[in-house]
């Protein structure tokens, strides 16, 4: 994520200098995404170069020694645009887990079920950790932090659900004969886009026997 818009959004509230921006950003996101102050100043310089922020007129105030920034009209418009547009879902980043499982089902001799279960256990540990942190948080004062934790729980939960789905799909594939030109008549067509009967199907045998 770009921090440009985060800083613009904060500056829309009032003019601030770098350290203030950093502190505000961290407080409001539950310190989950730490910023270093260098990042903040670099970003401010770029925003100034692009005409989105400008030094505020602080002469005669207590702040006149520090570089206080405020939004320009363009910056304000850009901030409005950011709020009104959804966050774009970019092309998926390279996902190690998805790649790992894709390789596991296509390479012989890999116990896919074991790979899936190891991951499920690990992701579940993460859910437990987020839940503990949520329980320790103060409902009324830590709203930002709780929202962040909720988002992490939702993401981990989705991953576990996906792992369940992977397992179920592999089990279905394993039950089908190796060459499935057509399913039994009347049965819904299998939705798996992957070719049935790949070598990986054999690896869905129960690992616990």
């Amino acid at each position: 994520m770009s921090i440009r818009h985060g800083l613009l959004a904060l500056l829309a509230e009032r003019p601030m200098y770098g350290y203030q921006l950093r502190a505000e950003f961290e407080t409001r996101t539950g310190s989950t995404w730490p910023l270093n102050v260098g990042q903040v100043y670099t970003t401010l310089q770029r925003l100034e170069r692009d005409g989105l922020v400008e030094p505020a007129d602080t002469a005669g105030t207590a702040d006149d020694q520090t570089a206080v920034y405020q939004l320009t009209e363009t910056g304000r418009a850009e901030t409005e645009k950011w709020w009104s547009a959804p966050v774009t879902r970019h092309a998926p980043a390279r996902d190690e887990l998805a790649i790992k499982l894709a390789l596991a089902v296509t390479l012989p001799g890999i116990d896919v079920q074991l790979v899936v279960q190891r991951q499920r256990t690990e992701t579940m540990r993460a859910v437990q950790q987020y839940t503990r942190l949520s329980r320790q948080a103060d409902e009324s004062n830590d709203t930002a932090w709780l929202l962040v934790l909720d988002s992490l729980v939702f993401a981990a939960e989705a991953e576990i659900r996906w792992l369940d789905h992977v397992e179920a799909r592999l089990a279905r594939t394993a039950r089908r004969p190796a060459r499935t030109d057509a399913g039994p008549s009347g049965a819904p067509a299998p939705t798996a886009p992957s070719s049935p009967g790949r070598p990986g199907a054999a690896t869905t045998e129960k690992s616990g026997r």
């Binding site: 770009s2 730490p34 503990r132 942190l133």
Partner: peptide, 16 residues
Amino acid sequence: MTSIAPPRLPEPAPAG
């Protein structure tokens, strides 16, 4: 473009 570091979470609290 400046990007934000991955989430920083406190150490796991002891269970129970």
